[in-house]
């Protein structure tokens, strides 16, 4: 049981009209594993995230989570089962103070079921979570509305919102984009800590160097298809990956 996958995506396909955004992709992820998903722009990475989180419905294929078929569940029900995500373009509640953004997930049925229903009333838990992702405790930044926070803090807030659901699987959609090297370096330990806690993490990334440092396994997408899977060295050695990133070699 321990080694059975937490999430299994089986032959999933999504067509938008005549365009196949994701084509028969199969992969799985176990607890405590960090899976990187890379690929050129338009290769289907975000559609894959949307399929797993329920924002788009698959044309065919199945998704099982904790052994249960979830492919027809709406997004909020998948959240209750333990799937959290961040968005590439951050989506905080801009008019709410940063810590209030976390009160909503802390009030969710999932957290209630897990922790007994008191978390949503406790601002200190929201503030602790923000501190965990790098909001300095005494700086008062946590009390400022999200609308005036700089990008670095918004990305951290995006991560904190996902963590506040106490999920089993977190999908991070280009969390590193728009961040400086120093900011990325300060976020990596947070992600590694989540993995140590046993959470499965799917990271969709363009920042390959940073991703390769922490990912256990990588899958590479191109034109909606999985073209390679393996550790960082294996995928970068793959001819298909080189072609996808650098263009096809001419004979």
């Amino acid at each position: 049981m321990h080694n059975s996958p937490l999430l299994r995506v089986n032959n999933i396909t999504k067509r938008f009209g005549g365009i196949t955004a994701v084509n028969e992709i199969t992969f799985e992820i176990k607890k405590g594993e960090l899976l990187g998903v890379i690929g050129p722009n338009g290769s289907g990475k975000t559609t894959l995230a949307n399929l797993i989180t329920g924002f788009v419905k698959p044309t065919s294929g199945t998704i099982t989570f904790h052994g249960k078929d979830i492919h027809s569940l709406p997004p909020h029900k998948r959240v209750l089962l333990g799937i959290a995500r961040t968005f590439q373009m951050v989506k905080p509640f801009y008019q709410l103070a940063a810590y209030k953004n976390l009160i909503i997930p802390l009030c969710s049925q999932r957290v209630k079921d897990m922790e007994g229903g008191k978390y949503g009333e406790r601002d200190d838990i929201a503030l602790d979570l923000l501190e965990e992702v790098g909001f300095e405790r005494d700086s008062r930044v946590a009390y400022k509305p999200a609308s005036i926070l700089p990008q670095g803090y918004l990305k951290r807030l995006e991560l904190a919102k996902a963590i506040a659901l106490f999920p089993d699987l977190i999908i991070l959609d280009e969390l590193f984009s728009g961040l400086s090297l120093a900011e990325v370096a300060s976020i990596i330990p947070i992600i590694e800590k989540l993995r140590v806690q046993g959470k499965a993490i799917i990271m969709i990334e363009h920042r390959l160097k940073e991703l390769f440092r922490i990912a256990d396994r990588i899958i590479v997408l191109n034109f909606g298809e999985k073209i390679a899977e393996g550790n960082a060295d294996e995928v970068m050695e793959s001819k298909a990956v080189k072609n996808a990133y650098l263009g096809a070699e001419t004979e």
């Binding site: 209750l80 995500r85 989506k91 909503i104 997930p105 969710s108």
Partner: peptide, 8 residues
């Protein structure tokens, strides 16, 4: 969108 992501 965000609300759905947070289980609402």
């Amino acid at each position: 969108y965000t609300a759905l992501t947070l289980g609402i």
